[in-house]
Amino acid sequence: MSIGNPPEDDSPSLGSTLQQARRAAGLSVEQISTSTRVRIPIVQAIEADDFSRCGGDVYARGHLRTLARAVGLEAEPLVARYDAEHGGRPEPTPAAPLFEAERIKPERSRPNWSAALVAAIVAVVGFAGFTFVHGSGGGTDTAATGQEAAGTSPSPSPSASHRTTSPGPGPSGSAVAGLPKDQVTIKITARDGQSWVSAKDGNGKLIEDGLLKKGQSRTFTDHKRIDLVLGNAGAVQLYVNGKEVKEVGEQGSVERLSYTPGDPQAG
């Protein structure tokens, strides 16, 4: 009696398929990591059929598509095989503990009782002063009437001359014009779900590498260039130099973007 694997186990696994294609293309793990910006430990883990370091099924599918394209393979059959071997397309898993330190815990707003008390005192004093002035003979009205008769108008009060209007939400034309022209400014908001974000400045220095939870935002600036890697790119809202970039990517996709001070020229 011979001992061996059953016939169905003779086909290479997902990781072995990617590894064989990479070697056939004459590429090292380091070269694949540089071209795809998928970190070396994750490439090595995927080639060993270990998807636990991807941070969830959404990111695992994105990495499979990226690595498959880099070694000349069709991506969708590999993704379909991953879904079949891992129980279909489940709901996205919670964020991996790797990025626990990156999470921002918003502070609970507390009522400002001191400000409310001061406002109430000012209102009472103002009402009392108004009543006193108007009850003492209307001297203010007489002075105003005299100015109108002389053909002049009262000079505006200092407070009226310094009033400003608060800008509305969202970038406006003046806000875009006010951004520095010699640098690139990028704002990313996880609008429709969480997204993994990696950002490097123009010198290749890593300035962000973590999970952006739904509703959170990050802003990056640099004088040369900012390179982005966005996981679940369809969930983010992206502004470059004050202008919104439409159609950043699809839900679950991993996108690599690069912007300079003159962008965006195209989404």
Rank of each mutant, 00 (worst) to 15 (best):
E107T: 09
G168W: 06
S2R: 08
L257N: 09
N232P: 05
V58I: 05
T66E: 02
A101H: 11
Q31A: 11
V133S: 09
D50N: 01
E8R: 07
S35M: 02
E47A: 00
P94H: 11
L211H: 06
E76L: 06
D227A: 10
A60D: 01
I46A: 04
T145D: 13
A60E: 01
A25Y: 08
G242T: 01
A24E: 04
K181D: 12
A48F: 01
A128K: 12
G15K: 00
A120C: 06
R191Q: 09
A95W: 07
L98Q: 05
Q237K: 09
D83T: 07
P169D: 04
G135K: 11
R110Y: 14
A70P: 00
A68W: 00
G168F: 10
G210N: 03
G178A: 10
N5G: 11
I46P: 05
R89L: 08
H63P: 13
A120E: 07
E244A: 13
T142A: 05
R37K: 04
A235D: 03
S153E: 13
G204Q: 01
N203C: 00
H63I: 09
L211A: 13
N112L: 03
T36M: 02
A233P: 10
S13C: 03
K187N: 13
D9T: 04
A235M: 06
D10I: 12
R110P: 10
P77N: 03
R163Y: 13
G215F: 03
V122Y: 05
K224M: 05
A84V: 06
Q265R: 09
A144S: 05
L206I: 13
Q194I: 14
